[in-house]
Nucleic acid binder design. Structure first.
Length: 612
DNA sequence: GGCTGCGAGACTCG
DNA sequence: TCACGAGTCTCGCAGCC
């Protein structure tokens, strides 16, 4: 039964006649952007009865919303949504800020059950339900008060219900219930909050940064032109800013290659072969520039590229994303990365540049706390390595974490035969600091050249390339690592065998990754998945816990504003920084426990840069 | 000649 | 066959009007 609802009484009657304890729900809106978002209607289905609630230019809108609010704040019901975080955001906008938390997101379920597939409602309806779908544009061209639109909107709720009937048993069968109901569903509310809150931006600071970068770019371009004898025209714009246009485009690899060769350098690196270029093209990537880095022109070119990236990738686009209230609301997607990590887009806040000491540029300063508030950033110390310890159950590695030993120094000590006494590796030993200082280089090599790459399944070849040593030496490092932590290799083999037997692997929260190819790359991906996906689930669980704990202290005005894989950033009133800091740290250490202790580094500042 | 869409390559982050 | 997971920018080309 398909009913169109225009009055509050009709809605009440519909709820009474339906199985309101288990309903699918979908919203129709004017826009997907938070500041432009407005509801035009919504639809429900209980599997048999369906309805569309029209809220567009409806004089009864406030009363209907009151009925919706009453429905959504009841406790004993399950609300099924496709992309729950979005619908929760729409509900929040119309004043339903604390809806029932017993939800089932069919999009999240789809992702958990088939992590590499698309998860859009229309796509799933076509593929799994053989449904005939219409696009939003096609339906809305007749107006929000047309039969075509009503039908379109109601179908969304019907399909969502059908997907629920299909996915719910599969979630149980694949042992995904704990991950789904205890982490992912409560996490939908964190996602909602993240997108509603956004993060405050200092546009003045961004402008200052832009001016400095422009000036540096002008000088660099001039210097490069003079050095390489490249013709240019220069002048000033209407604001008096100096401009320079070289006769060639420095951003074009194809145009830069002849310049660099004319200066006497040889370019041996090539890009991947393609149909158009069977032998690849000459490449000016990071490895080429690293090799030629001693040349004065390349030195300038490297700086030029850094500045261009900062200007075009971050400084220039930033203002276009900032809403009227000065806050930037990026989109966080939970159903893209196969490891369960969040992704961020428009803009991607997770790739915000770190401070550049060479150029004295610090883009992170543009993300700030409002007046009277501070930012608190907390990140896990060695999250993935600790998870490697938990996964492998390697005695040496666990011992290092339990006794607070410096794992990087420990690896360096073993593979470079530094002869540091075992007890000095403990971070609380009186000699630890001086030894760490003394072997800083070796520790750095062990950390970035050995410990981290091994989590990715690095080979002797890749390590030799990244460290600039011959492959034999690199193989020695890997062998040393595996000798020091023998269970790592054992657990890698176990993972490989499981994958070959079952076609998938699963992590300790139950999250799965399926494979169709079983080559060396797949083995690396599978093992890395066990670590990276658990890290992602851990961070989510901790955010869920923090959201719950912080809700007990509304006076803190704590808001989650950002998360970057192993890091959670909140803003909080200045006078409550201390308790909020303690709370965040507690939640991250205890939100998801593993067999090795977790360490969290917390910092406070008025802007994101100070939180480091 | 200008516009749009697309893939490749390069760079940003954890 | 450079090591896991992502997103965005520019270039250069193809196709269209």
């Amino acid at each position: 039964m398909n009913i169109i609802i225009h009055t509050p009484q009709q809605l009440i009657d519909w709820f009474k006649s339906s199985n309101y304890k288990e309903l699918s729900f979908d919203t129709e809106t004017t826009s997907l952007k938070y500041n432009e978002l407005d509801i035009v209607g919504c639809s429900f289905s209980d599997g048999t009865n369906h309805c569309y609630v029209n809220l567009f230019k409806n004089p009864e809108r406030p009363k209907i919303i009151s009925v919706l609010k009453y429905f959504f704040t009841r406790k004993a019901q399950l609300v099924i949504m496709h992309n729950a975080a979005f619908d929760l955001k729409v509900l929040y906008k119309i004043g339903i800020t604390h809806p029932c938390e017993n939800i089932f997101c069919t999009q999240t379920a789809a992702h958990l059950l088939k992590e590499e597939d698309h998860t859009g409602l229309k796509y799933l309806a076509e593929v799994l339900l053989n449904a005939d779908t219409t696009s939003y544009e096609a339906a809305s061209k007749f107006g929000f008060n047309s039969d075509a639109f009503y039908k379109y909107a109601t179908n969304d709720a019907i399909w969502t219900y059908k997907l629920y009937q299909r996915f719910q048993p599969q979630i149980m069968q694949q042992n995904l219930s704990n991950l789904f109901y205890n982490i992912e569903m409560p996490f939908q509310f964190c996602l909602r909050d993240l997108e509603i809150n956004g993060i405050l931006v200092d546009l003045e600071e961004n402008k200052c940064l832009g001016s400095r970068v422009d000036e540096m770019l002008y000088n660099l371009t001039l210097e490069m032109c003079n050095y390489a004898k490249i013709p240019y025209v220069s002048g000033t714009d209407v604001f008096g800013t100096q401009l320079i246009h070289p006769s060639i485009n420095f951003n074009s690899v194809r145009q830069m290659v002849p310049v660099i060769e004319r200066l006497g350098m040889e370019i041996t690196e090539r890009t991947e072969p393609s149909e158009q270029y069977p032998e690849g093209q000459k490449s000016l990537g990071a490895s080429t520039l690293k090799r030629l880095a001693n040349d004065p022109f390349i030195k300038l070119f490297i700086q030029y590229k850094k500045l261009i990236k900062l200007r075009d990738g971050f400084i220039h686009p930033l203002p276009t994303f900032v809403d009227e209230d000065g806050r930037l609301r990026s989109h966080f997607n939970n159903n893209i990365a196969v490891t369960g990590r969040l992704t961020s887009s428009e803009p991607n806040l997770q790739q915000t540049p770190r401070k550049n000491d060479d150029l004295h540029l610090d883009f992170r300063k543009v993300y700030i706390a409002p007046e009277g508030k501070s930012l608190i950033a907390a990140d896990f110390g060695g999250q993935e390595l600790r998870l490697l310890g938990d996964l492998s159950q390697d005695r040496n590695m666990i011992d290092a974490f339990v006794n607070n030993k410096d794992l990087h120094l420990m690896t360096a000590n073993f593979i470079f035969n530094l002869n540091i006494p075992n007890e000095v590796l403990c971070e609380n030993h009186p000699d630890y600091k001086s030894v760490k200082e003394k072997y800083w280089d070796k520790r750095h090599t062990a950390k970035n050249g050995v410990n981290f790459p091994i989590v990715y399944g690095a080979t002797a070849k890749s390590i030799s390339l990244s460290l600039g040593v011959v492959q034999k030496v690199a193989q020695g490092y890997i062998d040393g690592f595996m000798k020091l932590y023998p269970n790592v290799r054992t657990s890698m083999n176990k993972c490989k065998q499981f994958l070959l037997r079952n076609g998938y692997v699963y992590n300790r929260t139950g999250r799965r990754r399926r494979f169709t190819k079983y080559d060396e790359r797949a083995f690396r991906q599978a093992y890395n998945f066990l670590i990276q996906s658990t890290a992602a689930d851990m961070t989510k669980a901790c955010m869920v816990m923090f959201r719950r704990e912080a809700s007990k202290h509304p006076e803190w005005e704590a808001k989650i504003v950002l998360t970057v894989h192993d890091e959670i950033v909140i803003e909080v009133l200045d006078q409550f920084v201390e308790p909020a800091k303690k709370c965040l740290e507690y939640c991250m250490v205890n939100g998801y426990k593993i067999s090795v202790p977790l360490v969290v580094e917390v910092s406070v500042g008025k802007n994101y840069s100070e939180c480091k």
